[in-house]
C-alpha cells in the first residue's frame, strides 16, 4: 500500500463542495473528504437519513459532485447493494464499461440502530460495496437523542443528567465487532485525526472484492459540547485513552493499528466534553472509575484478540 502523500491527493478533484449546511467544525464532512480521496474511480454514494444526508443535499442544492441516492433511515445498505447489483448486470450485458465503486454512508443512528438489518443483510449477500459509518454517538440531526452508540453516562436530550440518573445507563454497542462476525473481507475502525490511517483503510476497503465496513469516530461540537476548533484533539484523546481503538480485521485476521506509548486516563477523553460535565461532580466520581474499568477490559480483550499480548 503506497504512502499517503497529501500534496499528491490534493490534486484529485474535490468530491464534496463547500456550501453544505453541516455545522461549523463538523466531523462528518472531514471523514467524507478523506474517504473520497481513497479512490480515483467514480463513486455512487447513498446516505441514510442523518446530519450528513440532510445537510449536504438541501433542495435545490447538492454538495456532491458524483451520483447520489437519497434514502430513508433504515435502507441505505439495501439501496446501494441494489445499485451495485444493477451495475454488475448491466456490465455483464455490455451496456456499461469501467469500474465504479459503491459507498453507503450512515450515521450511528442509521447504522447501529435503525439501518442495522439492511446492513447485516447486504453484508451477508456479499455485495461489492463499502459501508462507512460516521459515529458521533447520538441522533445529532434531530436534537441529540441517545442511540446505541452513545457512550455510558453521556447526557443527551433523551438521557439527560438529573437528580436520579446520571446520563445514559448503558455502555456503547461494539458494532465493529458485530460486523466482523459477518466474516466479510475487510472491517476497520478509524478516526479522521489520523488521516493516514483512515485513507489507507478506505483504500483497502474500496480495493477488496466483496463488502467492506469502516466505523469512524466523528466529533460533534453541538452534541459533545466542545469548542468547534478542538474536535480533533478530542478524537486524539479517544485513541490515546483507548476509548476508540484503531484496528482492522482483514479476512478474519485482527490487527491493532495504533498502540499509545502510554495509555492516557479516561478523563482526558471525558473532560473536554460538556456532555460528561456532571461526571466531575463529587457524587459521580465513582462513574469515571466504572468507565475506566470498562475501557481497560475492552482494551485487554483487543490486545489478546490481535495477538499483541
Amino acid at each position: 500500500m503506497s504512502k499517503v502523500d497529501l500534496k499528491e491527493i490534493a490534486k484529485q478533484e474535490e468530491e464534496l463542495t463547500g456550501g453544505h449546511r453541516l455545522c461549523s467544525g463538523c466531523g462528518a464532512s472531514i471523514i467524507v473528504r478523506q474517504v473520497m480521496r481513497a479512490t480515483e474511480d467514480p463513486v455512487v454514494v447513498g446516505i441514510a437519513t442523518g446530519c450528513l444526508e440532510v445537510s449536504t443535499t438541501i433542495y435545490p442544492y447538492t454538495a456532491w459532485k458524483g451520483s447520489f441516492i437519497h434514502n430513508a433511515f433504515e435502507n441505505v445498505a439495501a439501496t446501494i447493494s441494489g445499485a451495485e447489483s444493477a451495475f454488475r448486470s448491466l456490465k455483464r450485458q455490455g451496456k456499461l464499461e469501467g469500474d465504479t465503486k459503491f459507498l453507503a454512508i450512515g450515521g450511528d443512528g442509521g447504522t447501529y440502530d435503525i439501518g442495522f438489518q439492511s446492513l447485516s443483510g447486504a453484508l451477508e449477500r456479499g455485495h461489492d460495496m463499502v459501508y462507512l459509518c460516521y459515529d458521533n454517538g447520538a441522533y445529532m440531526n434531530t436534537g441529540i437523542q441517545r442511540s446505541s452508540a452513545t457512550p455510558r453516562n453521556a447526557s443527551t436530550s433523551t438521557s439527560p443528567d438529573g437528580e436520579v440518573i446520571p446520563g445514559k445507563q448503558q455502555f456503547k454497542k461494539e458494532l465493529t465487532d458485530i460486523v466482523a462476525a459477518h466474516n466479510i473481507p475487510y472491517v476497520a475502525q478509524a478516526s479522521p485525526h489520523n488521516f493516514r490511517d483512515l485513507i489507507k483503510k478506505a483504500r483497502k476497503a474500496f480495493e477488496v472484492e466483496g463488502p467492506a465496513f469502516l466505523n469512524v469516530l466523528a466529533q460533534c461540537p453541538r452534541g459533545w459540547r466542545h469548542p468547534e476548533g478542538e474536535g480533533l484533539d478530542i478524537l486524539r484523546a479517544a485513541t490515546d485513552t483507548c476509548f476508540w481503538p484503531l484496528f482492522e480485521v482483514e479476512n478474519g485476521e485482527w490487527k491493532l493499528n495504533y498502540i499509545p506509548r502510554e495509555k492516557a486516563p479516561i478523563t482526558d477523553w471525558l473532560k473536554p466534553q460538556g456532555r460528561f460535565k456532571h461526571l466531575f461532580k463529587d457524587k459521580n466520581k465513582y462513574l469515571i472509575d466504572e468507565i475506566q474499568e470498562h475501557v481497560d477490559q475492552r482494551w485487554e480483550t483487543l490486545l489478546h484478540r490481535t495477538g499483541e499480548k
Binding site: 463542495t17 463547500g18 456550501g19 453544505h20 449546511r21 438541501i58 442544492y61 447538492t62 456532491w64 459532485k65
Partner: peptide, 9 residues
C-alpha cells in the same frame, strides 16, 4: 452536480 458551491456559508 456540486451546485451547493453557489450557496455561500
Amino acid at each position: 452536480p456540486g451546485n451547493a458551491d453557489d450557496y455561500k456559508t
